[in-house]
Design a protein around this nucleic acid. Structure first.
Lengths: 97, 97
DNA sequence: TCATAATATTATAAAAATGTAATATTGTAA
DNA sequence: TTACAATATTACATTTTTATAATATTATGA
């Protein structure tokens, strides 16, 4: 892999990792790593305001990390990007044992 | 692992991952993943200004990701945090094959 | 249909990160 | 001892993130 390819990869990967570099945002991802959750549960679990939680979720969805399923008047968010899931798992191995 | 522990972990890990969430900063880490390098080599390899490269390196050193060895009038930086190295390797598996 | 719960949006303030230019420091070789 | 190369520092402008408050939307059950 040459420098140019590495540059491109780093561009791509770093923009994904932005979402991992904020404590509650990372916590949201960890919280979602065992399945979909609705917004109120998420914001209560991680201790962010409803507004900010909704903003973060929307951004992570629009950038391809999360998927959204609506049911009744609930929004269920879930991790849709398999690389995110893999990364969370390997981070758990590295940092949580 | 309960929510409080996860919160603390996420605090810790996210502050480390901040350095991964900027394209050239991640590239620096990748570049260093095969051994120590001197500042000029780094800034030429990643295409950052000398000043910014030096600033980033210093910050990553002060936050425990990098080590520094001086020889003659060169500064050699290297990855000193084993978790960073592990993470880079697993990221390479996930994103680069 | 009305009130409410759940979520989203908007605007904006505050804080942090990034980029840049100019200058300083320091060791080395001539 | 001087000039230069290598690195570091400083100050500051710009951009991006984060936080907060207020309001809007929308579906649902009473």
């Amino acid at each position: 892999m040459d420098m140019k390819q590495m540059q491109d990869k780093c561009e791509e990967v770093s923009s994904l990792l932005k979402h991992f570099s904020h404590p509650q945002r990372l916590l949201i991802l960890c919280y979602l790593s065992d399945g979909e959750k609705q917004v109120t549960d998420i914001h209560e679990a991680v201790g962010l305001s409803q507004s900010q939680t909704s903003q973060f979720l929307k951004r992570m969805q629009s950038e391809g990390l999360l998927g959204l399923r609506r049911e009744k008047n609930f929004s269920f968010y879930y991790i849709i990007n398999p690389a995110v899931l893999k990364l969370l798992k390997s981070m758990q191995k590295i940092f949580c044992q």
